[in-house]
Amino acid sequence: MSEVNDRGSIKWTAMMLPEHIQMLNKMWKDKERKAKPMLDEQELEEINMKLQLAIHHHLPVQIKYYSDYDYKVIKGKIKKIDLADKYIQLDDYTKIGLMDILDVVTE
């Protein structure tokens, strides 16, 4: 029995217009996007307490946050919490919006 060498959707791209290929690429990229989870009041209060503890005791933290339709993790020490502009700044000058933070782990 012979094996079929099927190239999937690659075989059809030669017959597609560039606009169709761009639309398919955008569709596949949109499909990989993750939704931002909504945190309840208790989770937000817990994150706030961990941030306050970390800044007052100069503890390193690991922060999970939402950015560009994906979840990201960063480690460092908190340099500043700006409540007026609603962001935190780490010691490497990275700024993270307070509403984008999903979890904080003190180390």
Rank of each mutant, 00 (worst) to 15 (best):
W12S: 15
T13P: 07
A14F: 08
M15Y: 11
M16W: 03
L17W: 07
P18H: 03
E19G: 11
E19C: 03
I21A: 01
Q22S: 04
Q22C: 05
Q22V: 08
Q22A: 15
N25S: 13
M27R: 14
M27F: 14
M27Q: 11
W28T: 07
W28N: 08
D30H: 01
D30M: 09
E32I: 01
E32R: 06
R33C: 08
K34W: 04
K34C: 07
A35M: 08
A35N: 11
K36H: 04
K36Q: 12
M38Q: 12
M38E: 08
M38N: 11
M38F: 09
L39C: 00
L39A: 00
L39E: 01
D40E: 11
D40T: 11
Q42H: 12
E43L: 14
E43F: 09
L44Q: 11
E45S: 14
E45M: 13
E45A: 14
E46D: 07
I47Y: 00
I47P: 00
N48S: 10
M49K: 15
M49H: 15
M49T: 14
K50S: 05
L51D: 02
L51V: 00
Q52R: 15
Q52L: 13
L53H: 14
A54M: 03
I55P: 04
I55H: 04
P60A: 05
P60L: 03
V61Q: 04
K64C: 03
K64N: 04
Y66D: 01
Y66Q: 02
D68V: 07
D68E: 09
D70M: 15
D70W: 14
D70S: 15
D70K: 15
Y71A: 03
Y71Q: 03
Y71W: 02
V73A: 06
V73W: 12
V73D: 10
K77T: 07
K79F: 06
K79R: 12
K80P: 02
K80S: 03
K80H: 06
K80G: 05
K80M: 07
D82G: 10
L83D: 07
D85H: 05
K86W: 08
K86Y: 10
Y87F: 09
Q89F: 06
Q89H: 06
L90M: 06
D92W: 07
T94E: 11
K95W: 05
I96H: 05
G97P: 07
M99N: 10
M99C: 10
M99G: 09
M99F: 10
